[in-house]
Nucleic acid binder design. Sequence first.
DNA 1: GTCTATACATCGATAGAC
DNA 2: GTCTATCGATGTATAGAC
Lengths: 212, 212
Amino acid sequence: MSSMSKIAGLNGPGRQKSAEKTDAILKGAMGEFLAHGYAATSMERVAAAAGVSKATVYSHFQDKQGLFMTLVRRLAEEKYRAVFNPQDSQFLQGEPSAVLQSLAHKMLDNAMGDKQLQSFMRLILGESGRFPELAQPYVENLAKPVIELLSQYLASRGELQLSDPEATARIFIGSLVYFVILQEVLHGKKNLPLERDRLINSLIELITNPKH
Amino acid sequence: MSSMSKIAGLNGPGRQKSAEKTDAILKGAMGEFLAHGYAATSMERVAAAAGVSKATVYSHFQDKQGLFMTLVRRLAEEKYRAVFNPQDSQFLQGEPSAVLQSLAHKMLDNAMGDKQLQSFMRLILGESGRFPELAQPYVENLAKPVIELLSQYLASRGELQLSDPEATARIFIGSLVYFVILQEVLHGKKNLPLERDRLINSLIELITNPKH
DNA sequence: GTCTATACATCGATAGAC
DNA sequence: GTCTATCGATGTATAGAC
């Protein structure tokens, strides 16, 4: 009987290392790691949050570190797709100032309202010293594609007369990301308020250089 | 005899809760917290690193959290003085482009070479969700003074014709800090290289608007 | 494949000797 | 004021039943 389910390969419960439980464990681990960080998260709580036993967690993942790395890579891809959706392929069409404004709005709207993303940033930044190999997918899958896309776009718009489009892209992205870090991640909203649109407008004004 | 030292208030050993031991504990705690983070740091290791017993640590500090908060506040002040030294009070004299370039160089030189500062950034950012009250001194004593000083400077230079000096200051600082975060904290140097001076030059070119 | 039970280490914090 | 010794709780990881 039990051999039948194995042979059939159907998706009944109690079969193989069910993908359902793998997902449940990852989901539980996500909540725990994002809330408490790596060191303060116990496999006990992960198991409880996933609704399985601790031994099951260890049958699906080698150890705590393996579970953590799998989770982080998964989340990095997910957030990447959310921010950097190959959406309307013509989202780079139009006046550069309008394109840049739309991009900045999209990035900030996405980041400022996503508490999970902010917790994820805390986790990656906080553990980047002890898990350097985890910072890499974050850089490779999130920061790098955005910077390179913007770089190429800025380089393609000769009318902007930018002497260094790549460095300019860094300025654009850096200003926005640090804004999120300061206002949201570090809770600077209260003591160091700044309206979102003031930053965006100044950024676009500088880059598109309307005084020229 | 022991009463004499108390009365005299001299700095002989074995007197009061010696400031020496307090310093030793803080120094030991600094190494441990910066290396392993809050949760993974044990009071046992802190005591060992400080060369005292665990009980002594608890006689100088209320508990682990109290020790941690004292340490962070101390480090924030220290790093503030290092970067933002009220040095030559005329470091804002001269051509704006030269002033801004000197400031950017100073900030990046300071941050890129200071591994301890980078670990400190990881610690603050990583724990800012669970210790929001610790992010505040960091913002208040480091980010805010720098941004406000630059804000006022930019506002005072009317020839720059900046429509929003405060937002422009954010762009300046944000670009630099995110550069440090991406290249050093997140180890992006290898996969996403960018020469420091390219960022600085573009930043100054945009702000001083030489095409005008 | 998943569970319960457990081995073994280490944690934060304190009591009591000196 | 500082130490050693220890308490109680909790951590990771695994063995063995089903």
